[in-house]
Design a protein around this nucleic acid. Sequence first.
DNA 1: CCTCCACCGGAACGTGAGGAGT
DNA 2: ACTCCTCACGTTCCGGTGGAGG
Length: 409
Amino acid sequence: MVGSIFTRHIEKRNTLIKNKDVLQTSYLPEEMPHRSAEIDSIATIIASAFQRDRPSNILIFGKTGTGKTAVMNFIGNELRKEDPSGNTCVYIYINCKIVDTQYGILQNIGNQTMADSGKSITTGLSIEKVSSDVRNSIDEHKKVFIVVLDEIDHLVFKSGDDVLYYLSKINEDLKHSKLSLVGISNSLKFKEHMDPRVKSRLCEEQMIFPPYDAKQIEDILRSRAVLAFDDGILENDVIPYCAALSAQEMGDARRALDLLRVAADIAERTGESAVTEAHVRYAKNKIEMDIVSETVKTLTQQSKTVLMSIIHNTNDDNKTMTTGDVYAVYKKLCDILQISVLTQRRVTDLISELDMLGIVHAPVKSFGRAGRTKVIELSIPMDVCNMLTDDDSMKPLKTSKLRKQTTLL
DNA sequence: CCTCCACCGGAACGTGAGGAGT
DNA sequence: ACTCCTCACGTTCCGGTGGAGG
């Protein structure tokens, strides 16, 4: 037999997409359409690092997909071009959605500054020890450090502003080095959760990235499409359609790129010679479904059980329910699944988490004498029910006998 | 205007996993 | 082997609270 199981697929694959990387959201373009003003003003602030001055701390706001992260990484790249050996300036990027604890942030900065000396920061040390280690390591370098904290709101929300307090006043204890912070956030609201002192120090400069409009998203898509596709692969209305769809979603350029990439993927896989508007529509559904199933998959068993209780409480004529309703069903499900029953207090927290993930909608509402409670409604399709019962830990609910039992609840 | 329901949600604390230093 | 650290996940306790009905 000639060839592997892949041969057929490799041969069949017509190359609709010339360069796939260009359509990834992580791809860093050579130039950034409609963001030159922002790049310029950040560059003026940061340029002082080359005079060995401390650039002002910057806070950048903007909705998702407005190019905040891309602009900062673009600037980071330019910084390295200007100073290839890193003699005066070090650029450190941390995504606070991934690293969201005080300890993690310090550890991350420490590891990036100590990398050349072969040392590293491990876990199990006290915060005080780690902070002083990091501070010493920074000072030894005698450089200007630009620390970018992406999704900083997530950090503040999750772990408070202690690290920010520490980092924003670290310069007082540095003799040779300097450190400036760039915070990136998609909500303005998180400032309220910060200590006023931290806030004022962090907000020395503030910038807001406005959402892109449909025309601008079109430009961005076109600049990428030129690199990713040969002429004639995209039907004329594809890019405007992607742009229009994502402009509806608050000018999210990332969504627009995802749409285009997934649409092209679908067209390629089905062996078609061009990408059409229909592919984009299909891509839109696929992306939405993928997001939901991915988040549901990563829930803990307890959260899945709570979600299951909400699904069981949902029926055609009554889509909403109260915390009490959910908890009653939840207790029975726990019994069937043979898992421990959490307190109602904890379950309300789990429901709130599901709310934050966009899986359910659960505002609190008062019914006067009838009390005050969350009014819970499922905000994803019922199909997730199947996704949930496919899960190993939820197997017991799959047998028909038990399912009958649970639907009767 | 007051009451009172059915929870909400903050605070403090407990437990146990995962890792480090000594 | 023992102590010490963080962090995730829960529990217990308890003071609120919006608004329909008296």
